[in-house]
């Protein structure tokens, strides 16, 4: 009996700690998502930022699982990043994101697609094959914000349904994707806000940032895989004084390089 009481007490203690922890972080990074579309949000433009909607891997939980892991940082990260794209490049971009999925064929109208938290995605075979067809036609997918071995395995399980014949390789620092607009030879891990307040830039066992890619027959990157880093949080919280500028700055440069690379290769 005493053991059972002790277990229940421990459970309450853990739950309370988690609540307190999250509340503390939220106090540091208050949820300031303004979901009001920008005035020019429907402007027709050369570039449309497309965010991939996918179904979650079973077993995930929490708020993101209910809302869908694909929505993490949405929409503030997208819109704040697009402001930077407009300011720092000559690219004519729409100010608001567009949601695409692998069910309809809409994705083929948006040759650059961003997918977040792909360590939680679960692509049925047909969707994985459509993703492959998307890149075979010339599309580019940038993935972000998934960490550690466990999420990597989930990511590759779905990916391999469409890209099983394509090796995933590390991107060399000399690759054009790190130089097309900004020189990004020396890079560091961009942390999410979950662990950053505790002086930690990694999540789970994802200690090292991994810049990886799947390439096509011509050696062009068609999948830019940002593993063990969180560009999305850096874009989302770039305007927050508590989030260091150096991470936001690298994330902006990275995102811009990936877009311009996708538009030139």
């Amino acid at each position: 009996m005493s053991k059972r009481v002790a277990r229940i007490a421990l459970l309450f203690l853990l739950a309370g700690s988690l609540w307190a922890f999250q509340r503390g972080i939220r106090n540091l990074f208050p949820d300031s998502d303004d979901e009001t579309p920008p005035a020019d949000g429907n402007e027709k433009a050369e570039f449309m930022w497309a965010r991939l909607r996918y179904s979650n891997f079973q077993g995930g939980g929490g708020m993101w699982a209910r809302r869908g892991a694909w929505t993490v940082d949405f929409p503030k990260a997208d819109r704040q990043f697009l402001q930077g794209v407009r300011r720092l490049t000559r690219l004519q971009t729409r100010s608001m994101e567009h949601i695409v999925d692998l069910i309809s064929d809409d994705i083929f109208d948006y040759p650059f697609v961003y997918a977040v938290e792909v360590g939680h995605w679960n692509l049925p075979d047909a969707q994985a094959r459509k993703l492959r067809e998307f890149t075979d036609r010339g599309g580019f997918l940038m993935t972000d914000d998934f960490h550690g071995t466990f999420e990597w395995d989930i990511f590759t399980t779905s990916l391999n349904k469409g890209f099983g014949d394509r090796p995933i390789t590390d991107i060399e620092s000399e690759d054009p994707i790190f130089h097309v607009v900004f020189d990004l030879k020396d890079r560091f891990q961009v942390p999410g806000i979950v662990n950053y307040p505790f002086g930690q830039t990694h999540e789970y066992d994802g200690l090292e940032p991994k810049w990886r890619a799947v390439r096509d027959d011509k050696g062009r990157i068609v999948l830019g895989i940002c593993h063990n880093m969180d560009q999305g949080d850096a874009w989302e919280w770039a305007d927050n004084p508590r989030y260091p500028e150096k991470y936001a700055s690298q994330a902006y440069r990275t995102g811009i390089n990936y877009i311009v690379y996708a538009m030139t290769h």
Binding site: E46, F47, R90, L91, P111, I259, V260, M263, T264
Partner: peptide, 16 residues
């Protein structure tokens, strides 16, 4: 090309 455009990417790919 005066600014990044999808047209350029795909023309390049065809030429390659």
């Amino acid at each position: 090309e005066g600014e990044p455009r999808w047209e350029m990417k795909f023309i390049r790919r065809a030429a390659e």
